[in-house]
Computed example of a mutant assay.
Amino acid sequence: MTDDDISKAKIVGDFKKLFAKLMDQTVSLTEEAGTSVTGVDKESYDATVSALKQEMENQKKSLTKHWKTLVQIVLSFPKKTVKI
């Protein structure tokens, strides 16, 4: 993800995509780093990565719920009173 990607985000769907991309990159980089972990540390590292993945999925679900609520609130206002 780049600064340009972030600056181009304008609507809720853009931000949801950015968050998903950030999660995917985090998992990818973490798994890549894990290839250098060996021996006894590997099991602990894998368990930590698994917990990280689960927490990110939970955050994604939570964020989706909050975005839906925000959209509903914004859409409930008359169009000419909302400036985004």
Results as ranks from 00 to 15, higher is better:
residue 65 K to R: 13
residue 62 S to M: 07
residue 83 K to A: 09
residue 80 K to F: 02
residue 61 K to L: 14
residue 61 K to E: 15
residue 62 S to Q: 03
residue 79 K to H: 10
residue 12 V to W: 04
residue 56 M to K: 02
residue 77 F to Y: 15
residue 14 D to V: 09
residue 33 A to V: 15
residue 62 S to D: 00
residue 9 A to Y: 03
residue 11 I to F: 03
residue 8 K to A: 11
residue 81 T to H: 04
residue 48 T to V: 05
residue 29 L to F: 11
residue 16 K to H: 07
residue 17 K to C: 06
residue 82 V to P: 01
residue 38 T to H: 02
residue 68 K to C: 05
residue 82 V to G: 09
residue 22 L to N: 06
residue 37 V to K: 05
residue 9 A to R: 01
residue 44 S to I: 12
residue 64 T to L: 06
residue 57 E to F: 04
residue 68 K to H: 13
residue 42 K to F: 15
residue 38 T to I: 00
residue 26 T to D: 09
residue 63 L to M: 09
residue 74 V to M: 15
residue 58 N to L: 00
residue 48 T to R: 03
residue 32 E to A: 12
residue 25 Q to H: 06
residue 48 T to Q: 06
residue 21 K to W: 03
residue 69 T to K: 09
residue 53 K to E: 10
residue 35 T to C: 10
residue 33 A to H: 07
residue 74 V to Y: 11
residue 15 F to M: 03
residue 84 I to C: 09
residue 41 D to A: 05
residue 30 T to E: 13
residue 55 E to W: 00
residue 71 V to I: 14
residue 29 L to Y: 14
residue 67 W to T: 00
residue 38 T to Y: 01
residue 21 K to H: 10
residue 84 I to T: 02
residue 38 T to Q: 04
residue 73 I to M: 13
residue 74 V to K: 15
residue 45 Y to M: 03
residue 45 Y to K: 02
residue 59 Q to T: 02
residue 62 S to R: 14
residue 4 D to C: 04
residue 3 D to H: 01
residue 19 F to N: 01
residue 53 K to S: 10
residue 76 S to G: 06
residue 68 K to E: 12
residue 47 A to F: 06
residue 47 A to D: 13
residue 40 V to P: 04
residue 75 L to N: 03
residue 50 S to P: 04
residue 24 D to R: 00
residue 52 L to Q: 02
residue 81 T to N: 07
residue 13 G to N: 08
residue 63 L to H: 05
residue 42 K to Q: 13
residue 7 S to A: 14
residue 33 A to I: 13
residue 25 Q to I: 04
residue 76 S to L: 10
residue 82 V to F: 03
residue 30 T to H: 10
residue 47 A to G: 08
residue 14 D to R: 13
